[in-house]
Every structure is written in structure tokens, then in C-alpha cells.
Amino acid sequence: MHRTSLFSIYFTLFIALLCQLLPWGGQGIVFRPDFMLVVILYWLLRAPNLCSVSTAWVAGLLVDLATGSLLGQHAFSFTLTAFAALSYQRRLVLFNTWQLTAYVFTLLIIERMVLLLLKLFAGNENPGWHYLWPIVTGLLLWQLMVLIFGGLTRPQTK
């Protein structure tokens, strides 16, 4: 793991916001991963000295503003997920790739569930099973992040 620069964090977050703004037509929106969430989780786990829960909160607020949904709901779910991510961050070095993927999977589930609760409290309908698709696509996006910026687990020494 080489050192991370603040620039790469903000640049990837910016790209994620752009992806969030892409015109997701019709059915595509069902499969849209939470770009901002995956990117912020990656940097939270990799460089907790550079971004923190507050960065996640700002990212969530940006998502709220961009999607036009109730202000603060993504901010809330991102905050909780970021906290959950950070609470095990120091133990990540002990994880292998599969364990790390499972960890990210859990985090994505946490975010979806918190958001679902908020949406249901706000009076929305039960969205159905396709609501969980962003978890799967989010994991794929996570793998893409790992491919581009490098993995978080210790390189295997033989």
C-alpha cells in the first residue's frame, strides 16, 4: 500500500458524483450502485487519517441534493455505515480478500437497511427485492476500485 493523496480521494468522489448524475434511464436505475458510498468506504478503510465520518456525511448530503430525495437520509445512512466501517478498520490487515469482500458486503447491507427504514418512516412503499440490487453492483464496483487503486489486504508473502 503506497501513500494516498487527498487529491485522489476528492477526485474519485467527484467522479462518483458524476456517475450518480448520469441519466439512468428506466430499469437501469434499479441496478445503479451507490457510487459515492463505495468510493467513500474504500477511502475510509484505506486512509482513515485522510477521510472520516464527516467526509461520509458530506458525501451523503451531496447524494441527497443530487437525487432530490429527502435531505439528510443518505447523509444519515452514510454516517452510520462509515462508523461501522471504521470500527473494524484496524483489523483489516488480518483479513484475506474474501473476508474483506464479506466485510464490504455487510457494510453495503447496513447502508441499504438504514435507508430502507428511513424511507419507510417517511411513508414510502415497500420497494421489493430489486431494492437490494445496488449491493451486488456495489460489490462489483468495489472490485473495480481494488483493481484501479490496489487492494487493502496485506500482499501475500510466500
Binding site: V53, L61, L70, L71, F76, F83, S87
Partner: peptide, 19 residues
Amino acid sequence: AFSRMVFFSALSISIMAVD
């Protein structure tokens, strides 16, 4: 991280209520 989480969660909830 915990105190930040508490602070920002409270902030988000109040923003939601206001919005």
C-alpha cells in the same frame, strides 16, 4: 469516530425533519 457519528447522525436527523 463515535462522537462524530453521534454528532452527524443528529445533524442528519434534524435536517430531515426540517426538510
